[in-house]
Write a protein that binds this DNA or RNA. Structure first.
Length: 612
RNA sequence: GCCCCUGUAGCUCAAUGGACAGAGCAGCAGCCUUCUAAGCUGUUGGUUGUGGGUUCGAGUCCCGCCAGGGGCGCCA
């Protein structure tokens, strides 16, 4: 298994040992953990470490002893030189060099390449997978509000969560994908109200049309119920009558009226059908569905316990609600988590209450070791409050809860607003993406069979969309520009997919099975060296991205892979290579690159099309 | 008032405290009879918002300030 610099683990450890003894023998402080990083120069590769910290430490030591320190960069270079000559020509490395305070160790090219390529081709789809960590992680994402339609803001949440789940899973953690759709609240009741009042019995046949219709109903209902400027007394009376009906409906729903429940379940199912189809398009399989309505009762029980234990204050007797003074209970003097309500005056639960109950379910029923919440950054305060209340409650897994916030998605015209009809639905963008890819295929690849075009259009269209979301760090807001998101050139998903396709094309045209082995003992071009360097780093990238919860790192890495491959493709002939041994070696290199691109794309939830 | 996030090329974004701050888009100049031009090559473009501090070394860490966004008791 290749992990980090693990490929040359033995050689690296031997070097470290010799550096330590060199230091000990020459009165230098122990260098501590040597921080190896890849050599940054293009055209060659190896590993590198610097001696600045050691030189600085030694300088401090000398200052204590003699009252005089030394110039650190200069001293670092001296140490690097001494170490370099002490090492001589270590096994596994072609060359050792001391430069600017750095010790650079250059790999034996042929051996390095052979190991990298052989490992990748032997491990195939598993190349880059981390060792099992023996820990179970739950990722919660894909939580749109029921009875609203799925827009590109939800899409960002969903693609980010899915890629995070794939990352931690591939890095070696057992992973559970959870979705928590909001199916309660006034917004939901509002849709039920207008449907019952004006549209009873109507139902668009197509699944997306039906889901989207619910959003239109919500917008219309909001217009009817919203106070307007300069309304006539009749209009005011009408509006208030409507609102009274809605409140009455909410009350009946709360009482569990079977008729209302039937309607609620039916419309919720329309939303869920739409969501399931979008998840199908995105290739996502959710393991666990939590509905807000399912944790309602257990949430109330938790409130009782918090009151009994003096963590929550029941202000209902004086006309208030049940609250938790979080800062006060934590003993903080400055306001940080503030105070929040965990039960309304009328005894109904809030979002916060249900999150307390849900956390308990996750840890106690699903036995997860860690729980990651992929939720809009605007809910950061809310989740911190939930985690702190759990902590006050004595729930020790509270420290195993992480909020992965992400910036919100807005439009060039401003924030999305369902009421103003200013909203971009995922399905609309997806359909447009497909149309554009089909047009592109007709133009650029007219020989592609008709029956293949639809599949490729979907793969490439989704690839463009996914990459547009994933190539921005999650803590940054995105202004969603359809034209930019559906661009297929440059730093985009299709650019990466195209690199895969071109690699695939070479291997197909070779007309022979992939050679079992090949020697890389010829003079490698700088393009080949860079390609090898990058693909060898994939396992380390997976671990880093999973540890930091940063899909962006893989997105950037995948682009670098494709960029390097495109350059290689242009500059280095494979099928027309100078000699047969070089041809075979390059075929294996191309196959290894293709495999690495494929694995990286899979982590990004982007398809690797055979042709495009 | 308190808390969180952001500020890097004209625009959109990268950069485990480390070697000359990098890509894409846009602009300019080239490359399809050669493994798919959704591509490649070259080129233009920077006081990393600002002032201090820590460090051998700061876009990165600490403090202040400026600008923008978000959040803050019965919405989700």
């Amino acid at each position: 298994m290749l992990e980090g610099n693990g490929m040359f683990e033995q050689e690296q450890q031997a070097i470290e040992q010799r550096i330590r003894s060199h230091c000990a023998e020459n009165g230098l402080p122990d260098p501590g953990s040597l921080n190896w990083s890849p050599i940054p120069f293009g055209g060659e590769w190896g590993i590198s470490t610097s001696f600045f910290q050691l030189a600085a430490a030694h300088s401090r030591l000398l200052k204590e002893q003699t009252g005089q320190g030394v110039n650190v960069p200069q001293h670092a270079q001296e140490i690097a030189s001494q170490v370099a000559s002490a090492l001589g020509a270590p096994a596994g490395f072609a060359r050792v060099e001391a430069l600017n305070g750095y010790l650079n160790l250059y790999y034996e090219r042929a051996e390095f390449v052979r190991r990298v390529v052989d490992t990748i081709l032997a491990e195939g789809d598993h190349f880059g997978r981390g060792e099992p960590k023996g820990e179970r992680v739950m990722v919660e994402y894909a939580q749109p509000n029921a009875l609203h339609s799925f827009h590109i803001g939800h899409y960002r949440n969903t693609i980010l969560g899915e890629v995070l789940a794939r990352l931690v899973e591939f890095a070696g953690f057992e992973t559970i994908r959870a979705s928590y759709p909001g199916d309660l609240g006034l917004g939901v009741i509002t849709v039920l109200w207008i449907y019952q009042k004006f549209y009873q019995g109507q139902e668009p046949a197509e699944v997306h049309a039906r889901g989207q219709w619910l959003l239109k109903l919500y917008v219309e209902a909001t217009r009817l119920l919203e106070k307007k400027e300069g309304e006539t007394p009749e209009q005011t009376a009408q509006r208030e009558a409507y609102d009274a009906e809605r409140r009455e409906l909410y009350r009946r729903w709360d009482d569990g009226d079977p008729q209302v429940y039937e309607l609620w379940h039916r419309l919720r199912e329309w939303s869920m059908e739409e969501l399931r189809d979008i998840l199908r398009i995105m290739g996502i399989k959710i393991d666990v569905w939590f509905f807000e309505s399912e944790v309602d009762e257990s949430a109330k029980a938790i409130v009782e316990e918090l009151i009994a234990r003096g963590i929550a204050d029941d202000e209902r007797p004086s006309g208030g609600a049940v609250i938790v003074k979080i800062d006060e209970k934590l003993g903080l003097t400055k306001e940080k988590y503030r105070t929040n309500v965990i039960l309304r005056g009328d005894g109904t639960t809030l979002y916060l209450t249900k999150d307390l109950a849900l956390a308990k379910v996750k840890f106690e029923q699903y036995h997860v070791d860690r729980s990651i919440y992929v939720v809009d950054v605007r809910q950061s305060m809310h989740l911190q409050q939930a985690f702190k209340i759990l902590e006050l409650w004595g729930f020790k897994q509270a420290e195993k809860c992480y909020h992965l916030g992400y910036g919100f998605v807005s439009l060039p015209e401003g924030a999305m607003s369902a009421r103003r009809g200013r909203i971009v639905l995922f399905k609309d963008v997806f359909d447009e993406a497909e149309r554009r890819v089909l047009a592109e295929i007709a133009h650029k690849n007219p020989d592609m069979p008709q029956d293949q075009r639809q599949l490729v259009a979907q793969q490439v269209g989704l690839g463009a969309l996914a990459y547009a979301m994933l190539s921005v760090d999650n803590n940054k807001d995105i202004v969603f520009d359809v034209e930019a998101a559906l661009n297929f050139d440059g730093h985009t998903g299709p650019y990466i997919q195209n690199a895969y396709v071109r690699a695939n094309s070479i291997l197909k045209k070779a007309g022979i099975p992939l050679p079992e082995q090949a020697a890389f003992d010829y003079t490698l071009s700088s393009h080949e060296v860079q390609m090898i360097d990058l693909i060898s780093r994939f396992p380390g990238m997976v671990q880093q991205a999973a540890n930091e919860y940063r899909p962006l790192l893989i997105a950037t890495y995948a682009y670098d892979l494709a960029n390097t491959f495109h350059s290689l493709y242009h500059a280095v002939p494979v099928l027309q290579a100078e000699t047969e041994p070089i041809r075979l070696a390059r075929l294996r290199l191309v196959a290894a690159a293709r495999q690495t691109i494929e694995n990286a794309l899979r982590l990004l939830s982007i398809a690797a099309p055979e042709v495009m």
